[in-house]
Deep mutational scan, measured.
Amino acid sequence: MALNTPQITPTKKITVRAIGEELPRGDYQRCPQCDMLFSLPEINSHQSAYCPRCQAKIRDGRDWSLTRLAAMAFTMLLLMPFAWGEPLLHIWLLGIRIDANVMQGIWQMTKQGDAITGSMVFFCVIGAPLILVTSIAYLWFGNRLGMNLRPVLLMLERLKEWVMLDIYLVGIGVASIKVQDYAHIQAGVGLFSFVALVILTTVTLSHLNVEELWERFYPQRPATRRDEKLRVCLGCHFTGYPDQRGRCPRCHIPLRLRRRHSLQKCWAALLASIVLLLPANLLPISIIYLNGGRQEDTILSGIMSLASSNIAVAGIVFIASILVPFTKVIVMFTLLLSIHFKCQQGLRTRILLLRMVTWIGRWSMLDLFVISLTMSLINRDQILAFTMGPAAFYFGAAVILTILAVEWLDSRLLWDAHESGNARFDD
């Protein structure tokens, strides 16, 4: 018995066209964080690309023209004298008006014999932002004059995390709450300039795509075929072959399989920071003279006294001054041990922890910024005066060393310790 099946006739004509040209192939790229070699397709503007294995951002879609970056830099340069030299806060102490600005706080630190601690604050609040705007201006002028731009481009990517104007702005709020127990506070004209400078700096850093600047100024022929001998440069993120001198053909720094002496430098910085954190938390970090009496505060006791007036601000200072430094030390110690013992479990967790400490590390400088600003506000000789204690130097040095330890660690070593050939990683 035959089955009668109805015929289905399409209502619209289906047209099949042959592909007349070869589909576009992607360029081969190595991930600078996990060293995976993959094919990167062509990316349009405002599109980002991520590593298929570790999800690290390979290409950032946010990109401004150099002219727009230069305009932002010149605007920031105009704001800087007002943000640093004009009063941020006014207080009335014992019937006398006192003005506080950024430069005055750094000068008070240096004047009291601790120039190293003052230079830490100076670099993060004044030096690094000033280098940022002058570097962008150098790129703008240098591109037109045919100057060598490689050193500036190499420095810009590392400079971003040292620009800490946003953290200093939080420190202004913390210092205001600490001082309000002794005097009446009012915002100064410099505060508005400083807030504007923070906003412009944040926007500029978020749109400063150094890798795209490398592509514009020093374009290189990408690798179009897969080759395990391809290496990625950690300076400019170019994937290719080393030249005859073993250097990256684009930025001219040595092109090595792994960062040289990464573990040794990381261990040295980490152990030194552990040693410095002990006096930083045991010795007094601030000293207040009130009517001839002397009151010393460690980091913890200062947080407890701050909690009596504002528990939320005390929580912020606790996280930045105690929780973050010790968390960074514990995480980095764990990561280094996992590399030495070739741990194969929990790779995803370790990668996330490394990215976390990379982002939060700079916030530990908050305590030094609060001390710097408070020193310029309260300084009335023996009637009422505020000065920093010996722990300030140890704390600042420990924070900087932990930042350097994270920067010096080559994250690809975590993958080397893991089993080879993993296309995915999980716990």
Rank of each mutant, 00 (worst) to 15 (best):
T387R: 07
W140M: 15
L94A: 02
A385H: 05
V121C: 05
E157H: 15
E407F: 13
D243G: 05
L156Y: 13
T67C: 13
R59T: 13
A391F: 03
Y138Q: 02
T11N: 11
H207R: 09
G293C: 06
C343K: 12
G235F: 03
N4P: 12
I351S: 09
I378E: 00
L278G: 10
Y182I: 11
R294I: 03
A70V: 14
I383T: 03
L79I: 12
P222V: 09
T117A: 09
L276T: 05
R150M: 05
P6I: 07
L323H: 02
D99A: 14
H261L: 03
L165D: 15
I403E: 01
K12I: 07
E228I: 05
L23S: 10
D367V: 00
V210E: 13
P6L: 09
A312H: 14
G142W: 02
A391G: 05
P249V: 06
V324F: 15
T110G: 11
L257V: 08
V121W: 08
I319Q: 08
L149H: 04
W84V: 07
S45H: 12
I106R: 00
H340F: 11
I274R: 00
C124Q: 02
T402P: 05
P24Q: 10
I274W: 09
L335F: 13
T239M: 05
L377C: 04
V329H: 09
C343S: 13
I287N: 06
E228W: 07
A392N: 05
Y289K: 01
L414V: 13
T402A: 01
G146H: 04
R62Y: 08
W363V: 03
V133N: 02
L191H: 04
M120A: 03
M304W: 08
A398E: 06
M1W: 00
V203Q: 03
Y394D: 06
K328M: 00
G293Q: 06
L130W: 05
R225F: 15
P325F: 02
D99F: 08
W107S: 15
Q220R: 15
M164Q: 10
L347A: 14
S411N: 11
R412E: 00
S364P: 00
W64G: 14
T75R: 00
L366V: 11
K265R: 03
H207V: 15
Y168D: 06
P390I: 06
R216I: 05
L145C: 11
I167T: 09
L337Q: 11
T402N: 07
I91D: 04
L409Q: 06
T204I: 03
S301Y: 07
Q108A: 13
M76D: 03
F123N: 06
S193Y: 01
T11Y: 14
R348Q: 11
Q264S: 02
F217A: 13
V203F: 07
A398T: 08
E296L: 11
F425E: 13
T334P: 06
I403R: 05
G146M: 02
A417F: 11
R226A: 14
L366G: 13
